[in-house]
Structure formats: C-alpha cells, structure tokens
Computed example of a mutant assay.
Amino acid sequence: MQKFLGLLILLAVVVAAAFFTLGKEKISTLSGNSVAKKEAVMVTGRAGSEKIAFLQSEKVTQLLLEQGLRVNVKRSGSVAMVQESSSDDDFLWPASQINVESFKSSSSGMRLQQSADIFNSPIVLYSWDIVTEALIKAGIVQHKEGVNYIIDLPKLLELVKAKKQWKEIGLAQLYGSLIIRTTDPSKSNSGNMFAALTANTLNNGEVVTAESLDNVLPQVKDLYARLGYMEPSSSDLFEKFLQQGVGAYPMIVGYENQLVEYSLLHKEHIALLKAKVRILYPVPTVWASHPLIALSDKGRKLLTALKEPEIQKLAWEQHGFRSGLMGVENDPSVIEVVGLPKSIDAVMPMPSASVMDKITTHLSSF
C-alpha cells in the first residue's frame, strides 16, 4: 500500500512539473519573450565595408534573430561586388543605385528579385581643425549653424588641379600640394561617387552626359592619377586617416556615418575627435543610397526586416545612417558628434549608369 501511494505521489510530481514547464513556455510565447521554435534561416551575402559593423552589431543581430534570420556577410567593395557576385549570395548591399543598374546589366542580373534603399548617407570630406580653418579663410568652406559646408568646391578642385602647395593657403607645416584622398573608384563606391561629383562640378555644375563626358574625363583622370595607391574600401581609408593624422591625410572622401559610428564604438576618443576632426559637406553633394539587392527569397526577407522602424532607429542613433523611409526623422541631437546638419538639402544627381561605367573604366586604367 505504501509503495502504491509513493508511486501515485511521484506520478503527481511528474505531471505537475510537466504542466508547469509547458505552461511557462506558453506564457513566454504569448508574451513575445521567446524566439520562434524553428531554427533561424541563414542569409548569406556581401555588403560594403561601411555597413559591416551595423550588420554584426549585437542589437541588430538580435532584432533580426527575432524575425528568424541570421546573417552571414562578407565585406566587399560596392563596385566589385556587383561584378563578382556568387550563386551562393542571397543578397548584395552596395552603396549606390548606380551599382544596382550595373548589376541589372551584368550576366547575373536576371537573379535580381527585388531591390530597395534601406538608408542613406551623403558623401562628405573629412579633414582636420587646422585645414578647415585655412579653407574657411580661403572662402572655400563656410561655418554655418555649427556645420562646415564646402561652398566653393570648384575653387577647391582648381587648387588641386593647379598643384597649389599647402603653404600657399597658410599651412606651411604640411608637405606638398593640396590633395583629396579617396578610395579606388573601380572597387569602392565612395571613390566612385566622388569621381561623379568631381565630374559634375568640372562640368559647370551640370550632370555629366555621354556628350559632355569627353570634356571633363581627362581632368578627373589627372586628379585621380596623382593619388597613387588608393585604398579598396572606405573603412580602410577612414582608419588610416585617423591613425596617421593630418600630415599624411589632410583631406579624405568618406560617408557621413563613419565618424558617427566610430565615435560610438570608441567613446574614449570622443573629446579628441570633437577637438580635431571636421566633417565638410560639399554643396551640393551626392547621396549614397545603400540599396539592398535581394537575390533569393531569403534575401527578400532580409530586405523587409531591415525596414523595420526599430532597426532604422538603430541605424541612425548607433551607426549614423539616415533613414531611407518616409516619415522617419533623424535627430542630430541624440548623437555625440558635432557638425551634423538636421537635413541634407543640396544634392546633385548622379550621372547615368553608362556614363559612370565609362568613368570607372578610365579611372581603373592606371
């Protein structure tokens, strides 16, 4: 009898434990605290270097996991990725609509299922306090409402073309002639887009066409030929800019988000960055639109997930990317970086994909 009673008690304990466990799981599921039971889908692709930290951040990874997605991403230059895409890629994430058009016209273009801008970042120049002050005195840069605007880009390019020495604009401590360092335009989008901005500027501020290209292309090529070795990615160039300083890198081309992201990842350097580094906004500039190219159903799911408001909010506040969605505001006051405008108002269109292809081809020949 006692054995029978003990067995009943043990059975009751097992049932109670099972009920408690199942009930707890049910409550957790209803409250949204558990990720779906099925294993998350792995999405594989390539992205520009400026977006790698965003995709691999803990918060973005968790938000995507909650939507059943894991991302395996490889770093690749925007121009290179659309030329070298693999059948294993579920997505490509370059930094310009021009890259999308180039992909469409490639042999792999038929794989495109969907594309959409996820967020935006204007092309800017990064420089230093002493260089910016000299450019302000020269009438090239204007400091207005806390933001440094390049109001006379034609004059700046003319100084570079004429090989004017830094000492001629009051910077005797800097060696050599004025130069604007950029990434390799045949591999990286920031270098490619600055080539477009340069060509448009040299074309009297008008968008370069197939008819006007021959007049400006030799000048653009000459400016790039003087740069020597060019970094293959924006992140590599930005890191060297910060590491080697004003003597080696007085001015570089980059994306607005790079300083924001670096400041948030290296808060111990914020005071020094505020004191020494300056963001210079060309007037007009060009937008890097960061469109995601979905090559499979998994790529389409990632595209949809990245448009979620919470991810878009993180993109701005933690990585400095301006939202690509209507109705989403980007407030500079929430970011510990000085010199960010609330909006980018002066923007120049890019040349057509066919014209950009000719520019890139010529700039990759040296």
Rank of each mutant, 00 (worst) to 15 (best):
K24G: 14
K26F: 06
I27N: 03
I27V: 14
I27S: 07
S28T: 13
S28C: 12
T29C: 14
T29I: 14
G32D: 12
G32L: 09
S34M: 10
S34Y: 04
V35L: 15
V35T: 15
V35M: 15
A36S: 15
A36H: 11
K38A: 15
A40I: 07
A40L: 09
M42P: 02
M42C: 08
R46H: 12
R46Y: 11
G48F: 10
S49C: 10
K51V: 09
K51G: 13
I52T: 10
I52P: 05
F54I: 08
F54N: 11
L55A: 09
L55C: 09
Q56Y: 04
V60D: 09
V60S: 05
L63C: 00
L64W: 01
E66T: 07
Q67E: 13
R70H: 07
V71P: 02
N72V: 14
N72K: 15
V73S: 12
V79L: 08
A80C: 00
S87P: 08
D90C: 05
F91V: 02
F91N: 04
A95H: 11
S96V: 10
E101S: 11
S105V: 14
S105W: 08
S108C: 06
R111P: 06
R111F: 04
Q113R: 15
I118V: 09
F119W: 14
P122S: 05
I123M: 07
I123H: 01
L125R: 00
S127L: 03
V131Y: 06
T132Q: 04
T132V: 14
T132S: 11
A138L: 07
G139C: 10
I140H: 05
I140T: 05
V147C: 08
N148D: 10
N148Q: 02
I150H: 06
L153W: 05
L153Q: 11
P154V: 04
L156W: 01
